[in-house]
Amino acid sequence: MTHFDTEDDNQSSQVPSGQTSSFKPRGVTRGLTTTTIAKASSTGKLSVTFNAECRQPICTNAEKFNNEIGFIIRNHGTFHYKEWRMVPEDVRAPLRHYLLEHFDINLNDETTKKCIDEQMKKAWKGHKYKLHLYFKEIGGENDLEMAKSKRHPDLKEEHQEDWIILCERWCSPEFKERALKNTTNRSKRKLESKNGSVSTP
């Protein structure tokens, strides 16, 4: 799950004069709650039920499951591929296996694998979008070499090569041309989606 900072995150909460606030802004979801609950269960793992048609979890542990996927993608994912469908199986498989630490799932079941990949795709695209926003905020479109040296704080040192590949792609004429075309097409839409981040199913 992606956490968006607000202006108030960097400000102290308002309290009466002479008193200090113990308020701490909420950070990025790290799966700590999932770890605690899983350890407290009889099997040590949380059960998950999937909907094959919608390709998503439909159970009380669904939110925890999706949060854990987001955590895995951010910390262990590879982002230099153009699209998620281009990420090879030998890269996806280890990501799915991280889930076995806290969840009782069968990775040999095709429905389970498809549902996991669908949620990982959403998390991967969301995080890559966040990286692109950061790239533009630091002026990467105007200074490529500077952007390469200022890796996003969420990316570990071993992801430096990924970051460099992304920066070069975002500055390429092909990417800029496609981005402009997509922006123009979106501006012509007469009806906007009302779903927001929640899927209709």
Rank of each mutant, 00 (worst) to 15 (best):
T200D: 11
G139N: 09
T29H: 09
S47F: 08
E157D: 13
K148L: 04
R151E: 01
K194T: 15
R169A: 05
A38H: 01
T200Y: 09
D162L: 01
T200W: 11
L131T: 02
S17G: 07
L107E: 00
N67G: 11
S199W: 11
F23Y: 14
Q14M: 14
K64F: 09
K181F: 04
K122G: 08
E137F: 04
L46P: 01
T43K: 11
K24I: 15
H132T: 09
K188T: 05
Q19Y: 14
E158G: 02
Y134P: 03
Q14N: 15
E158S: 10
Y98K: 14
K136N: 10
Y134I: 02
D5R: 10
S149Q: 11
I138S: 03
P25A: 13
C167I: 00
K190V: 15
D8Q: 08
W124F: 12
T6C: 08
R92A: 01
G27I: 06
F71Q: 13
M146L: 07
P88L: 00
W170C: 01
E7F: 12
M146Q: 06
K156D: 10
L131G: 02
P88C: 00
R169W: 03
K128L: 09
K136F: 05
S17N: 14
F50D: 02
T43W: 03
D9P: 00
I138R: 02
F50I: 05
Q160E: 14
R96S: 06
H102G: 05
P173G: 06
L191Q: 14
L32F: 12
E158P: 02
D9F: 03
R178K: 14
R189G: 09
K45Q: 11
K156C: 05
M1R: 12
P153I: 04
S17C: 10
I164F: 04
K64S: 13
L95Q: 11
S12H: 15
S41D: 10
G31R: 06
D162F: 02
P25H: 09
L100Y: 03
K82M: 09
I69Q: 03
L144W: 01
D117M: 00
Y98V: 08
G44T: 02
D109S: 12
V15S: 11
P201G: 12
K176S: 07
R169T: 12
